[in-house]
């Protein structure tokens, strides 16, 4: 349904570098479901700005290191 949003992310890679954090662990850290993390990693869902900041905070990086605009 619809085109993929023109935003890419490095969540999977950042999880790997964060001690192979699981999708479930990241989901619990930001108060979301594992399915939503999976949807983000597959570029099927673009999170809100607040959720994007929360994800960056979990990995201890700037938001631009997690999400990149590809429009």
């Amino acid at each position: 349904m619809g085109k993929a949003p023109p935003i890419e992310n490095r969540i999977r890679e950042l999880r790997f570098h964060a001690g192979e954090m699981t999708q479930q662990q990241l989901a619990e850290a930001i108060g979301m479901t594992r399915q939503t993390i999976a949807a983000m990693e597959q570029n099927r869902y673009s999170p809100s700005l607040e959720a994007a900041f929360r994800i960056a905070q979990v990995f201890g990086v700037e938001i631009g290191e997690v999400f990149q605009w590809k429009g």
């Binding site: 989901a27 619990e28 108060g31 979301m32 479901t33 399915q35 949807a39 869902y45 999170p47 809100s48």
Partner: peptide
Amino acid sequence: KAERQARDERE
């Protein structure tokens, strides 16, 4: 329980 309590913006 953690999954039940998640307030997911996508959902």
